[in-house]
């Protein structure tokens, strides 16, 4: 594995490398060099199995992290190739020519994250959300609770209590609140 990482380092700009387990490694590469390295890994390094392609929304950094999880049948090693792409107008090159099921993941990412894969077949078809009009729901800023409250009705008559507040009300209602500090400038 060390040799492979060295090799990858020689080929592309290796932004990060991490080993999670003996059989699970992660590398981060540049967006422009991704297709090249994936093709190399598939054709020459035995990473022929694409287990999945997924995205993580790094809202705070304004990025999406794409993860291409590859697997090598002969060494039994999983290699996750990470790529960071901009969150605004997110776009990525398609890998459907490398793996015939790649388009499926790309269609899903388009629907659930709003990441476009321009050349990918059927990428704009709906996947699980026919007739969805909100923002792509897997984005971090999609507020599930707010959507749920707006869309569905709550069962009437439910109420709850905070034990600490309730005990205050019952036992020491008259205990004074903390005094306000009187400062000079206020």
């Amino acid at each position: 594995m060390e040799q492979l990482i060295k090799k990858i380092k020689g080929m592309v700009h290796l932004r990060a490398y991490g080993k999670q387990r003996d059989d699970l490694h992660f590398v981060t590469v540049d967006k422009a060099q991704l297709e090249m390295i994936l093709a190399h890994l598939k054709n020459y390094e035995g990473f022929t199995h694409l287990a999945f392609l997924q995205a993580v929304d790094l809202l705070e950094e304004g990025k999406f992290r794409l993860i291409y999880m590859l697997y090598n049948y002969s060494t039994n090693v999983n290699l996750g190739v990470n790529v960071l792409i901009d969150r605004d107008n997110a776009e990525m090159n398609s890998i459907h020519k490398l793996w015939a099921h790649g388009w499926q993941y790309q269609r899903e990412l388009h629907e659930l994250f709003g990441i476009d894969f321009p050349d990918s077949p059927r990428v704009h078809e709906s996947f699980v959300l026919e007739g969805w009009e909100e923002m792509p729901p897997m984005r971090r800023d999609f507020d599930t609770l707010e959507y749920s409250n707006r869309t569905f009705y709550q069962r009437p008559g439910r109420s709850t209590n905070d034990p600490a507040e309730y005990m205050k009300e019952k036992i020491y209602k008259n205990y004074p609140a903390a005094p306000v500090i009187r400062r000079d400038n206020e």
Partner: peptide
């Protein structure tokens, strides 16, 4: 928060 009620200083 059950402790808060028991604490004399709440």
């Amino acid at each position: 928060g059950l402790c808060t009620a028991t604490c004399p200083a709440h």
